[in-house]
Each structure stands twice: as structure tokens, then as C-alpha cells.
């Protein structure tokens, strides 16, 4: 019996957003990355288009973090000691973009300075030709200081500055406006808050094709269904024509998955949990691939092996 597949007629489209600028656009990147453009939910090719596949950002730090899993240390090795080397290694590992995140403190426990932010951004820009996303340590005041410096140093490169949140969006958006960058607009798992932040950003005259929405997520077993549902609703609203939700979405499954006990703890856990490394990578993989299914355009990961597997998953899905 022939089965007719019901099709949804969407009127909206996800906005196209391009990260990074090559020499032609006044930057020094060798590659740009464009995301968005979808006219249907992810991978439903019978219903609409998905002109740009979801991409992967790899998170690196300004210095080797003290609290990352030893498994990640094993994977990246010596490269973690230098953000330039780490960026190169990440590029080799298959990153589409580099996410440079600053630690809250340097090795002596002091807060990083604007000068340090500039030097690190410079180093990473020189080490890789990929688009760069710069994240502050997540404290509004410090983020402002570091991101304004990073914006200045990377002028013309079409960096993405984050996290641009309710409490500090004005400074981050101003820095993006002043130096031609994009912002990563983060809100706490809420459709209306995400919309509201986009309205506020637009109100400051930053065009929405320079905004990535970060709706926040949780890891598998730690609230992923909530994050998934918010992203799905945001994407449905975008496809229904709500302009303020039509920005591509970026999420950080790597950070979330590596916080979970299942990936963090190798000893004293039930035998049935199996091999530690395999379990940790799977945790990141399942978290990331679920979010890709719910509409993520950029997933930020930590382990090179998960990067490989998520790439494989995306490629298989794109093949239809």
C-alpha cells in the first residue's frame, strides 16, 4: 500500500550566518563557515532544504585547564600546554571552527587580563585559519574585559564573541559592533528569553545575521530533554516565521557531557558501566547528536574521537 508522508508547509527559514573573514573580506582566515538556511526541521529533506550541514567547534583553553578529565589530557597531550598548538591539533582533529575559552584564573589563581586575552587571541589566529569563537570565563565583568580586548585584537576577523547574556549583552554587542564581529547570545533554556535577548540585541543595531543563539543545554541524563525541547520549539517558531527565533543555534554538549559523573569518574563505578573512555566518548556523542537532531547548527565538543563520530553521524544524515 502506498503511504503518503504528511508534509508540513513551513513559511520561515533559518537565517544564514557566516563566521570568519578571509583576506577578501578583510580578515586572515583561510576558511569561512556558513550555517543556517534550513527551511525544515533537521534532515527532513522530503519537506524542505538544509543547505548547510551542522558543524563542529572544538573547545580549547587559554591554558591547560585544571579540572578537565584526564581522558581529554590523554587525547590532546602536549598540545594543551599552548593555545596555538592546541588550535592546530583541533584543526587536524576535524574542527570546523575553534572555540577559544578563557579559564577563570591563570596558573597562579589570578584573573586573566586584557593583555593576556589579546596575546592568546593573536596566537590562535596565527595558528589556525579556521573561524574563531571566543568565550569568556562566564563572569559578566571579567567577560566584558576579556572580550572587548579580544574583539579589538581580532578586528575584521568576524569572530564570534560569547557568552553574550542578559546581564552583559550591551558591552559584548557594542564590541561586536565596533569591530565587526558576531555574538553568541546565551539564555537559560527558555524560548521567550532567547527571543527577548535577540530583540534587545537587534535594538542595539547589530543585524541578526551576526547573532548565534545559544539556548543552553544539559548533558544526556542531566536535562537534555529540556534543552532538546526548547531548541525544537525555537526552531519550529523560526520555521513558522517568527523572525526573532530565526538565528542558527550553537550549543555546548562537550562541556555538559564532560561534567557528567558517567564521563568524569573512572573508578568505583558499577562494572556494567563498561570501559571508561568508551563511555565518556559515547556520552558526548549521544548528547551532541541528539542536539543536532533538535536543530543545533554548531555543536562544541571536547574529545577528538567524539568529533570524528559526530561528523560521521552528520554526514550519514546529510546523505539522506
Amino acid at each position: 500500500m502506498p503511504v503518503e508522508i504528511p508534509k508540513e508547509k513551513w513559511t520561515g527559514k533559518v537565517r544564514l550566518v557566516t563566521l570568519g573573514a578571509t583576506a577578501a573580506e578583510g580578515g586572515t582566515r583561510t576558511r569561512r563557515v556558513t550555517v543556517g538556511g534550513g527551511t525544515t526541521l533537521p534532515f527532513l529533506f522530503f519537506e524542505g532544504d538544509m543547505p548547510h550541514k551542522p558543524v563542529i567547534g572544538i573547545e580549547i583553553r587559554d591554558r591547560k585547564p585544571d579540572d578537565w578529565s584526564p581522558l581529554l589530557g590523554l587525547a590532546w597531550g602536549e598540545a594543551m600546554n599552548d593555545p596555538g598548538d592546541w588550535a592546530k591539533a583541533a584543526e587536524q582533529a576535524g574542527a570546523d571552527a575553534i572555540v577559544l575559552a578563557f579559564n577563570l584564573a591563570d596558573a597562579d589563581g589570578k584573573a586573566p587580563t586584557a593583555a593576556h586575552a589579546k596575546a592568546t587571541v593573536r596566537k590562535v589566529l596565527q595558528a589556525t585559519g579556521l573561524p574563531v569563537i571566543v568565550n569568556g570565563p562566564g563572569q559578566a565583568d571579567l567577560d566584558n574585559e576579556l572580550l572587548v580586548a579580544a574583539a579589538e585584537e581580532g578586528a575584521g576577523e568576524r569572530l564570534v564573541l560569547g557568552l553574550c547574556e542578559d546581564r552583559n549583552y550591551r558591552t559584548i554587542v557594542a564590541a561586536a559592533l565596533g569591530h565587526g564581529h558576531l555574538v553568541q547570545a546565551r539564555t537559560a533554556m527558555d524560548v521567550n528569553l532567547a527571543k527577548q535577548l535577540n530583540i534587545l540585541i537587534t535594538d542595539m543595531q547589530l543585524p541578526l545575521d551576526r547573532v548565534l543563539m545559544d539556548p543552553t543545554t544539559g548533558a544526556l541524563g542531566y536535562g537534555i530533554e529540556y534543552g532538546y525541547s526548547v531548541m525544537e520549539r525555537l526552531r519550529i517558531a523560526a520555521l513558522q516565521g517568527d523572525s526573532m527565533t530565526q538565528c542558527p543555534m550553537i550549543v555546548t554538549p562537550g562541556e555538559e557531557a564532560w561534567k557528567a559523573k558517567e564521563s568524569k569518574v573512572g573508578e568505583g563505578v558499577p562494572k556494567a558501566w563498561g570501559d571508561w573512555q568508551e563511555r565518556a566518548i559515547n556520552w558526548e556523542l549521544v548528547t551532541a547528536s541528539s542536539l543536532v537532531e533538535s536543530g543545533a547548527d554548531i555543536v562544541v565538543l571536547r574529545h577528538p574521537e567524539s568529533v570524528k563520530r559526530v561528523h560521521a553521524m552528520i554526514d550519514a544524515m546529510m546523505a539522506g
Binding site: 572587548v148 579589538e152 550591551r170 558591552t171 554587542v173 557594542a174 559592533l177 565596533g178 569591530h179 542595539m204
Partner: peptide, 9 residues
């Protein structure tokens, strides 16, 4: 640019 950011934010 430096003051502009502060004026804008």
C-alpha cells in the same frame, strides 16, 4: 572605539 563601547553599553 574604546569609549564608544562604553557609550553603547
Amino acid at each position: 572605539r574604546s569609549w564608544g563601547i562604553q557609550l553603547v553599553d
